[in-house]
């Protein structure tokens, strides 16, 4: 049923490319604030929060391999959508943590999860045509929370606001590092 996509709806779908930058900037802000609070968190760990913050948008692989193509290739119905739900995030995060050496995995799972959570919170706040958000808690429930209606994923001001916030926490992190005497690169 969903495998028949007309030309125009493919166009509108392609225009649903998420604003990754806002998500990544928010991940940077959260990660950097955590690194100010917890000294053992270094810029490398901030990166993990940022990766977590963009991980739900791995679903955009569907722009390269649409659901219809995937199910034609596999011969069974297929949908990438679970990647953009909490259930999918849990699995993606667990898989991602396995790429790291064992002693870093528990910490990485926490940092990835913080980032992914920020992504879902922001996306539930998005404006949608139907006034409902996506089924964020899938597969636990198909309940769709009411959409926040705050902004469209194509709006530019959220990235600008997040960019200002990121510049601010970057400056604060630099200052606090200078104050505590730890030297390390902060221009990441």
């Amino acid at each position: 049923m969903r495998t028949r996509r007309t030309t125009l709806s493919t166009l509108t779908e392609a225009s649903a490319v998420p604003d990754l930058l806002t998500h990544v900037l928010v991940g940077y802000i959260i990660g950097t604030l955590l690194s100010i609070r917890y000294e053992r968190l270094r810029p490398a760990h901030v990166t993990l929060v940022m990766i977590g913050a963009l991980s739900p948008d791995f679903v955009k692989i569907q722009l390269l391999i649409p659901d219809g193509l995937a199910s034609a290739l596999l011969g069974v119905p297929f949908s990438w959508s679970p990647l953009h739900t909490l259930g999918g995030s849990v699995l993606v995060i667990a898989l991602g943590s396995l790429l790291l050496a064992p002693e870093y995995r528990a910490q990485a799972i926490v940092l990835f999860a913080i980032g992914a959570l920020s992504h879902h919170v922001l996306d539930v706040l998005l404006m949608t045509p139907t006034g409902e958000a996506y089924a964020v808690f899938w597969p636990l429930t198909e309940y769709r929370p009411p959409a926040g209606g705050l902004f469209l994923s194509s709006d530019r001001w959220p990235a600008a606001v997040a960019g200002l916030g990121a510049a601010l926490v970057w400056a604060v992190a630099r200052y606090s590092e200078g104050a505590t005497g730890t030297d390390s690169s902060t221009i990441d």
């Binding site: 049923m1 028949r4 119905p77 198909e142």
Partner: peptide
Amino acid sequence: CLLWAGATPGDPIDGAYPDEVE
């Protein structure tokens, strides 16, 4: 999960309502 979501009606992301395709 990806196969299950493909096989069951009601996609987690696509709207819960019929769209122009249908």
